[in-house]
Amino acid sequence: MIKFEEVSRIYDGQTRAALANVNIEIDKGEFVFLVGGSGSGKSTLLKLVLREFRPTTGRIYVAGKDVATLPERKIPALRREIGMVSQDFRLLPGKTVFENVAFALQVIGKPRSLIRKVVPDTLELVGLGDKADRRPDELSGGEQQRVAIARAFVNHPKILLADEPTGNLDPDTSVGIMRLLDRINRSETTVVMATHDWAMVDQMRKRVVELDTGHVVRDQARGIYGARA
């Protein structure tokens, strides 16, 4: 589903690579934790999957597409296969929960009849079935993140990327978010989650890829946060 071959990325004006010679293969339906300190290259890796920029060298395949050479006009099609959740929930403050989730479908031209059917189902899935008419500022942080997840998942993407989704949440709320991502993963969606939350990683016992200053230093099938192989 996602494959990195000798991928390096050097940002403009910098000499040190944000990612250096990374080789990763993530299969369909896998759940992968991406761990490592700040500046280790986690976000760069996720942005490469989304083709926010091209790798400096190397090849990247996402959902069967060669991302490194993908022409600009085909980027929207790639992104429709990927859901993205970030630490700051990026909800639209003027819109209700329903409208925020519906927005993701509207802007890719889905018909209203479909939106009316799919959005409530998705809100139900994330546990916000009764809060469709609320506005983001009336919700707790955990609830806001659920809205963001609903928006990322409403189009049933093949891949869900999460960049520190629990970074702004307390531990109890984080567990709820984690369970939700796990449930989404069980519906055959590949989930890649960048995180600092070692307790979560240790508890879940999923595949762990650790980055350090742009290098993959560990790729462990049922890993925990701290241990180096």
Binding site: P76, R90, A104
Partner: peptide, 17 residues
């Protein structure tokens, strides 16, 4: 900016934006 960011993220076409 935020709206446009989300549109790009979920794959809205350039023309749509």
């Amino acid at each position: 900016g935020r709206e446009i960011g989300i549109m790009r993220l979920v794959g809205a076409s350039n023309f749509y934006i």
